[in-house]
Design a protein around this nucleic acid. Sequence first.
DNA 1: ATCCAGTTTTTGTGATCACAAATATTGCCA
DNA 2: TGGCAATATTTGTGATCACAAAAACTGGAT
Lengths: 178, 178
Amino acid sequence: MTKSLKDKTLQEQVYENLKLGLLNGEFKPGVSVTIRGLAEELGVSAMPIREALRRLTTERALVLTPTGRVRVPCMTRKKLNQLVSARICLEKQAAIDAIPYIDDEMIEALSLLNDEIDQCIERNDYQAYLQKHRRFHFTLYQAAPSDVFMPLIESVWLQVSPFLSLTLSLEHLQSYNT
Amino acid sequence: MTKSLKDKTLQEQVYENLKLGLLNGEFKPGVSVTIRGLAEELGVSAMPIREALRRLTTERALVLTPTGRVRVPCMTRKKLNQLVSARICLEKQAAIDAIPYIDDEMIEALSLLNDEIDQCIERNDYQAYLQKHRRFHFTLYQAAPSDVFMPLIESVWLQVSPFLSLTLSLEHLQSYNT
DNA sequence: ATCCAGTTTTTGTGATCACAAATATTGCCA
DNA sequence: TGGCAATATTTGTGATCACAAAAACTGGAT
C-alpha cells in the first residue's frame, strides 16, 4: 500500500489507494472485492476498508449486488452511451470554466503532457497512455478550482476507467459484444 | 424515523431518511451533525449512522471539517454559480434523453404536479412547493431510467437544497450577502 | 466584565465480536 | 460421470469498546 502520510485517516488512504487502482485498471469488471480480503491485502482492519468501499460505491465506482456484495461494475452499451454523454456536458463546461485561468505555464504543462501522450502511443504503452491522458484532462479542469464539477467528473471517470482499461487485455472485450 | 421496511439494511434506511431531510430543508447550513447524536435520535447504533454520513459526505451533501466533524455545508456565491451551471448541463441532457419516453400518462402526471405547484404558490406554502417542484423534475428525468445521470443530478440537488430551503426562514439569508 | 489556563466532556477513528445470510465445498446417489 | 442435497466457509451488517484529539466548560486573575 502506497502510504501518503499527509493523509490523516486510514480510511482516506485506503480510499485514495483503491481509487487510483480503479483508474489505472487494476480491477477488472465483474470481479468482486471483499472487505476482509482487502483488509488482509492492505494490512489494516476491516473498518477503513468498509468505509472506503462505501464511498466508492456511492460514487458508482463499485456496485452493490442485491446481497450486499461489492463488485467492479460491468459495462453495457447503454451505460457507456450515458457516460460519454455525461462526460461531454460536464467536461465541456469544466473546460469553458477553465479558460480564464489558463496561463503560459499551464499551456507549457499541457503541451508537455501531450508530447508524452504521443510517445506513449508510439511505443504502444497503453497503460501509461491512459494515465497521461487522465492527467491531461484533470490538469485542465483543475485550472478553475471547482468543488462542484471535479467530484462529478471524477465519478464519471471512475465508472469508465475499469472498462477502458480492458483494452489492455483485448481478449476480454468479446464479453461486451451485445 | 420513518422506516420503509422494504429497505434492507439499517444503514440504507438511515441514509434515505437523512437524504430526504436534507432535501426538505430540515438541516440548516452550518449546523454540525454528530454520529452519536443522530444515533440516539434515530434509535440505532453508531455504525449505520457512520456509513450513512460517509455516503452523504461523498455526495457532497455534507462536508467534513479539517478535524473530521460533519456539517451541513454553507453556500457561497461561487459555489452556487457552479451548481446552477452543473444543473443546467446535466438536467438539460437528462430532459433531452427523457423525451422519447414521454407518453400521455406522464404528461398527465407532470401536468397535475404543475397545477399542484401553482396551488402551493397561491397559498404561499413554500415548503410544499419545494417538494412538488423536486418531484416534477425527478419524474421527468426518471422517464429515461439512467443509473448515470440520476446520481449526478441528485448530488447537485443535495448540495443546493439546504440553501434553497433557507428561504423558508428569510431572516437567515443575510448571512450570505457577500 | 474579560481573557486565559486547566479540566471535563464530547467526538471521530479504528479494532474486534456475534450473527445470519449467502456462497462454496463436499460427498452421495442415480 | 453428472446432478443435488447437506455441510462448511466466507461474507456483510450492526454493536460495542478503547483511545486520542477536539471542543466545551469552568474558575480565577487582572
